[in-house]
């Protein structure tokens, strides 16, 4: 049975008719063509599909598209604004926080959510904050460095960075 839904994604309202069983990740990828969000498992373990739903980082493979009706979603495509990288993206770039890149969008969304809650996380808090995301390439060392970089950068220019990007 179809459901008419309206979801705000990266600031843009999208309306669509969807089946009940359609997962949010498939809505993003197949219906809207936002393929930056990846699928890495079937069992809610890997976090490759992480997006923000109402500001909270969630695994979009374990949320139904209909559950997002009327809500706000942010994906990796929403991190950079006006061609300017978000400090989290910059951190991953500067610190070699990625190799194959497949886990990276989800990892960055978790990092983004963590820094919203905790602008000055310790190494342990960073590792804890990204523990829902598997990476098979980096050994996590440089991901931690990337998040530290982003935290510093965001603390240095919080308002300015946001203003410029908006």
């Amino acid at each position: 049975m179809g459901h008419r839904i309206s979801v705000t994604i990266n600031g843009t309202v999208h309306e669509a008719e969807v089946e009940s069983r359609l997962l949010l990740v498939h809505f993003l990828r197949e219906v809207l063509g936002l393929t930056g969000t990846h699928i890495g498992c079937d069992t809610t373990n890997c976090g490759a599909c992480t997006v923000l739903l109402q500001g909270r980082a969630v695994k979009s493979c374990t949320v139904l598209a209909v559950q997002a009706d009327g809500r706000e979603v942010m994906t990796v495509e929403g991190l950079a604004r006006n061609g300017q990288l978000h400090p989290v993206q910059e951190g991953f770039f500067e610190k070699h926080g990625l190799q194959c890149g497949f886990c990276t969008p989800g990892m960055m969304m978790s990092a983004y959510a963590l820094l919203q809650q905790n602008p000055n996380p310790s190494e342990g808090e960073i590792r804890w904050g990204i523990s829902g995301n598997l990476c098979r390439c980096t050994g996590y060392v440089n991901i931690v460095e990337a998040v530290k970089y982003a935290a510093e950068k965001m603390r240095a220019t919080p308002a300015a960075a946001e203003l410029e990007r908006s």
Binding site: R56, V58, G132
Partner: peptide, 9 residues
């Protein structure tokens, strides 16, 4: 319990 993403839901 599980991981931060699961704990959010």
């Amino acid at each position: 319990i599980a991981d931060p993403l699961v704990r959010n839901m």
